[in-house]
Amino acid sequence: MLDLIAPFFERLNETTGLNFSPFYDSYDWGRLVEGMTVSVKLIAAIIALSLVIGVVGAGAQTSRLKLVRGLVAAYIEVFRNTPPIVQLLFFYFGLGAITPQVDMGGWYEPMIGSFGWAVIAIGIFGGSYNVEIFRSGVEAVPDSTKEAAESLGFSGFQIFVYVTLPLAFRICLPALTNNIISLAKTSSLAYVIAVPEITYSLSGIWSDSVNVPEMMVLLFAYYIVLVAIIARVMTMIERRLALPGYGQ
């Protein structure tokens, strides 16, 4: 792959001074690929965690226990009304400092690394939005449909899993898409705690090769393509789940 494009980018650098070093230098290429891989893994983990939190939180909000509902509400308040970067720093430096170290046979490593803390912090941040998104979906499911399930003997849990959730998910899919895309973008904040994702690895390249503008262009291009792919996937899911004749 690199062999194929390297001559072109080498010439480009020599003739115009536009230095896309990852496209001809195998070391920088390695850094770019590593950065993209970590970024994709990070985003996938963040989205997965935020979805789990969203579903569990929306379920907990329908709890009969006031305390449970109160805790969920407090969680949403805190994480929606503080900047994600502050949350990230709080988790990494605040909680990271007090989590135990693991004996790796001679040396010690923190139980949760920077990647882990980024997933936890940004996942929890995104989850606070997902709880609200799922809740609006849950509330849009007609009581009469749930009542039909109840009258057929479904338990409360079965009603939530088999009736409320599938319908709520369809209703809130557009809002969910927005939040997922926003989370993909927010994942670049992991840069500040040195997670070797794309922003971080490109910054490594530009400080070595002094090609900041070129790497910035690359970074923009990466996120544009990534977001386009996510949007495309979500549209496909939306189409797949669309119910014939429903909601039109």
Partner: peptide
């Protein structure tokens, strides 16, 4: 739940599971 095995009900608005 056991009661509801014995007694079925049908509503004015059908209330089928649309999905």
């Amino acid at each position: 739940l056991a009661l509801r095995r014995k007694v079925g009900i049908v509503f004015q608005q059908y209330n089928l599971f649309p999905h």
